[in-house]
Design a protein around this nucleic acid. Sequence first.
DNA 1: CATTTTTCGACTAACTTGGTCAAGATGAGT
DNA 2: ACTCATCTTGACCAAGTTAGTCGAAAAATG
Lengths: 149, 149
Amino acid sequence: MSVSSKCYYALRAIYALAEHNSPEPLKIAQIAERELIPIRFLEVILNQLKGGGFVRSKRGAEGGYFLARPANEMTIGAVMRFVDGPIAPVDCVSQSRFKECEFQGECNFFGFWGRVRQAISDVVDKTTFADLVRESAERKRGYVGDWSI
Amino acid sequence: MSVSSKCYYALRAIYALAEHNSPEPLKIAQIAERELIPIRFLEVILNQLKGGGFVRSKRGAEGGYFLARPANEMTIGAVMRFVDGPIAPVDCVSQSRFKECEFQGECNFFGFWGRVRQAISDVVDKTTFADLVRESAERKRGYVGDWSI
DNA sequence: CATTTTTCGACTAACTTGGTCAAGATGAGT
DNA sequence: ACTCATCTTGACCAAGTTAGTCGAAAAATG
């Protein structure tokens, strides 16, 4: 039940771009430094994220990366799914990877796994990078946050 | 974000014992057959579960396995943690595996990962094997279930 | 004693993870 | 046109994890 470090790197890279929030692109090297990501690995990751339509790039000197869409329209869940594949405790409760369970319709765990998946989804698909940036800014000025309903 | 098949096998094996619910033990071969688990692998798994205090065994002819504790005192989460390790999207939000995050106290994702972990925990640590057995029995007689609050 | 069943540790093939590396393409400034 | 910084692409690789298998011993039952 854990995300790969590649995925976490991807999230941090996008976070850095979201926080940067400027018309000037951010260079790979700068992202790598701020987010403590091995630079050669980050190259691979950013390229992949570009393919997924999360970021755009500009080549050449003064080039770099920026977000492809506004940070408040990009959810953590979307990135996690793109990098690590479907978010599901077991394949049979994933929409995209739905395989016939060996226990067709008779699975004793189907409902349970579905509830787990939904619980995760309720968090990751409702949190955007803009939320994280705001949260972080609030933390920096000492606001603790109120997560009650 | 997925459980290993070893873990799922372990859960199914315990489920079988919970459902069996008899003073007579269940043989490895029987469990393997009912839950579609490779028998040699199941041997390893049950032995491990015994070490964790989840099941007990009886050797020799007419031997087999039974639950070490009542099914309503055994949560899915406890078994998952025992087999797959801490349930946490990243190590830094796991109590037992807590490592200093590279971003000490300045991590932009800490709160987020904590909420993910809590969401998962709220499901897996509140569901017992007795719940699953009951749920399954209800499903068999056509009761759909009501999961509204 | 014979049979059934658990017990234990060693073994392994395939896959995934977490990267690295080299060479090329592209764009900006001079 | 040249040069330098930067992204692009694909190949490559070591180490660890996963998902098992196998053989032989030990215990209980009849």
